[in-house]
Computed example of a mutant assay.
Amino acid sequence: MDACWFIESKPAVSGQNADDTSFIGGRPRIPAGVDLPQCRLCGADLTFFYQVAFPAGHVWQSLSMAVFACTSCAHEEYLIPEMLTGVLAGADIPQGFLTQYQRNFRIVVFETRSGEQRMDYTPKIRFNRLELVPSKKTAAKRNKLGGKPNWLLDDESPATYASSVPMKFLMQWIEPPRFDLEDDAPAQIRLGLRGKPEPSRHRYYELFLGNQLYFFGTEAGHEPLVYVITQI
Results as ranks from 00 to 15, higher is better:
136 K>R: 08
147 G>Q: 05
193 L>Q: 08
133 V>P: 06
99 T>C: 06
84 L>W: 07
103 R>E: 12
72 S>D: 14
80 I>P: 02
150 N>L: 01
194 R>H: 07
131 E>I: 04
177 P>R: 00
68 F>K: 11
65 M>R: 15
92 D>T: 12
83 M>I: 04
166 P>Q: 01
166 P>N: 01
132 L>I: 03
140 A>F: 03
70 C>G: 13
107 I>P: 07
87 V>D: 07
118 R>P: 12
194 R>V: 05
158 P>L: 02
162 A>L: 00
131 E>Y: 06
72 S>Q: 15
202 H>D: 12
202 H>M: 14
69 A>T: 09
109 V>F: 04
146 G>V: 05
67 V>F: 12
193 L>E: 15
131 E>W: 08
108 V>T: 15
168 K>Q: 03
203 R>N: 15
148 K>Y: 11
109 V>A: 06
162 A>D: 12
95 Q>T: 03
101 Y>I: 12
100 Q>L: 11
167 M>N: 00
152 L>G: 05
76 E>R: 14
180 D>T: 03
119 M>E: 15
122 T>I: 13
78 Y>L: 12
152 L>V: 04
78 Y>T: 10
151 W>R: 08
114 S>K: 15
161 Y>P: 01
99 T>L: 11
173 W>Y: 05
110 F>Q: 05
124 K>P: 01
152 L>W: 04
184 D>R: 02
77 E>G: 04
100 Q>V: 09
156 E>F: 02
155 D>A: 07
182 E>L: 03
173 W>V: 00
192 G>D: 14
190 R>D: 06
191 L>Y: 08
201 R>L: 11
202 H>N: 14
134 P>M: 08
132 L>D: 04
191 L>C: 13
101 Y>K: 08
108 V>N: 07
167 M>S: 01
185 A>W: 01
181 L>M: 04
105 F>A: 08
191 L>D: 11
151 W>H: 02
121 Y>A: 11
161 Y>E: 02
159 A>I: 01
168 K>G: 00
118 R>Q: 12
195 G>K: 10
202 H>W: 11
177 P>I: 00
169 F>I: 01
144 K>R: 09
83 M>W: 04
187 A>E: 03
155 D>C: 05
197 P>S: 12
119 M>S: 11
118 R>F: 11
102 Q>H: 08
91 A>Y: 05
75 H>Q: 10
